[in-house]
Design a protein around this nucleic acid. Structure first.
Lengths: 222, 222
DNA sequence: AGCAATGTGAAAAGAATGTGCAAATTCATG
DNA sequence: CATGAATTTGCACATTCTTTTCACATTGCT
């Protein structure tokens, strides 16, 4: 198993430095220098871990992180240029596994990469499941059949299916789906779940979304 | 010597999750949900370690930390909600032993707790038997077979199995399970025990939960 | 035996979820 | 900017599941 690491960093010099250190540490890094192509690259190449700069030409780091999280749990380490940029990370859980603040020593980065990989090591996630999600189109695929989902439905499904078996409380789901701190009744989630189930049932006969009484919902564990 | 851990965290959901993980790891956590009572509680109960949220209703984490340091060297791990809060920690040594930044995985917290305790004292090793509990799924595994438990059943089993061989009185169980001071008849515990036993029996033939006459219940000591 | 504690099943009480509908909101378009 | 369609939201009621309690049976203890 190769240890592909994706480096997304617009300062070429820095990217090169990181690259060198990671090669020395036995990884196989790949560099991208702007934001627009990142999501595609990740979908195609399934890296083991992503080092993601927050400030990027093209699409910005937070947005990229969110999009990746819709279809993958790959570990992401955010790299922030300066202390005050950190403020942008505050909007709670944007889905990154760790973050590093410049200026950093390359040694430190390698150490963090190792740490994150160690933490997430036990992940036999052979994607290719029966469900595939396409964040660009807000579509899901089950057994090759297409579901058109609304935005909320898509986020909901992406979250649940992102970690099959894990139970999400309604509040957790709300926090993740409405990142703008909107106030929403928890029963609203039930409504969306119902619609999701209905759409899923149209193309698939087993129930994939389970309710866990007094806790929340989870996606079928495989 | 029991390993009491004090959790001070206003998000009840999070407190409960941490609580579960720590019980599973063989500790005896106690939760407080606001800042004003913390110092008193610590003086009376002498916990082994404190997990202290920085942002709290009532007295704030830094102030609490300072006050505790006036009379005790108990290890304190600060929990910060967001990255920018870290700034408040960096400047001065406020006396904490470590800090953790949300979002964190409960596993990570347990690891840090162990690390801090290792540094500051001698630590009894946690054991991993035939029973595994997953607080994020409210599931138990025995011999690889899955038990679906209700919330109360899960907490009950987690408590008992967290310290195999230790006898818990019904009142102790009630106090731990219903942290909201609910009033519940002690016979209620018996009912839940019965259901637990039934579910366990479906996948395992030896009796794992034992009644100790006129005292309470304990989990099979191995 | 006699008292106390625990096991058991069933039933009442309590909570959470499913469902259909309608009101509010958003969004694209004329 | 108005309009209608699609989406989102929240509610009320039905349904399901869980929790709690109780009465009675059984077991353990002195």
């Amino acid at each position: 198993m190769t240890q592909t690491i994706l480096i997304v960093e617009d300062t070429q010099e820095l990217a090169q430095l990181l690259n060198d250190y990671l090669v020395l540490a036995g990884f196989h890094p790949h560099c991208l220098y702007e934001g627009n192509t990142v999501v595609d690259w990740v979908m195609k190449n399934h890296p083991q871990l992503i080092l993601l700069d927050l400030m990027l030409p093209g699409k910005d780091g937070i947005e990229i992180c969110r999009e990746i999280r819709e279809f993958s749990q790959v570990p992401i380490i955010m790299v922030t240029a300066r202390v005050d940029e950190q403020a942008r990370l505050t909007g709670l859980d944007i889905g990154a596994d760790d973050y590093i603040c410049k200026p950093f020593s390359p040694r430190e980065v390698v150490a963090r990469v190792r740490a994150v990989l160690r933490r997430t090591a036990v992940e036999p996630l052979p994607d290719k499941g029966l469900l595939q999600l396409d964040p660009e189109k807000y579509q899901a695929n089950i057994n090759g059949r297409v579901l058109s989902l609304t935005v909320v439905e898509f986020h909901l499904l992406a979250l649940l299916a992102g970690t099959p078996g894990r139970v999400f409380s309604r509040n957790q789901l709300i926090e993740q789906i409405y990142q703008d701190q909107r106030v929403v009744s928890d029963r609203t989630i039930d409504s969306h779940i119902k619609k999701l189930r209905k759409k899923i049932n149209e193309v698939h006969d087993r129930e994939l979304i389970h309710s866990i009484y007094s806790v929340g919902y989870k996606f079928e564990e495989i």
